[in-house]
């Protein structure tokens, strides 16, 4: 599953980031590395981008890039 497929208010765990683009690098540099919890907070009025919460920080991220982030739902 990738991050763009997740529902609002769902918290997931990053397992892997796909590709080798500069954008992937930037996502990781900002802290979206494997084993990080991410919560989807909101989807923008026009369905893109999404708003996410991780490591005590809020970011907006286009769905295109969210699809680079592989996640799995958290076992509670």
């Amino acid at each position: 599953m990738t991050l763009d497929q997740c529902k609002c208010n769902e918290t997931v765990l990053i397992t892997h980031l796909i590709g080798a683009s500069p954008f992937r690098r930037r996502l990781m540099e900002m802290g979206l590395v494997p084993d990080t919890n991410v919560t989807i907070l909101k989807v923008a009025p026009f369905r893109d981008p999404i708003e996410i919460f991780f490591k005590n920080c809020r970011c907006i991220l286009s769905k295109n890039e969210a699809s680079l982030i592989e996640v799995r739902s958290q076992l509670k």
């Binding site: 980031l17 080798a20 992937r24 690098r25 990781m28 540099e29 802290g31 590395v33 494997p34 084993d35 990080t36 490591k55 005590n56 809020r58």
Partner: peptide, 30 residues
């Protein structure tokens, strides 16, 4: 190597912050 290196740094920082900072809830400002 890129992904692993960035992850290694972030995880090192994360564990350092866990030791140095009190448990973080969402702040009043957030």
């Amino acid at each position: 190597s890129q992904g692993e290196f960035i992850s290694f740094r972030h995880h090192w920082i994360e564990s350092l912050c866990e030791r140095a900072c009190s448990k973080k809830n969402r702040s009043k400002e957030t």
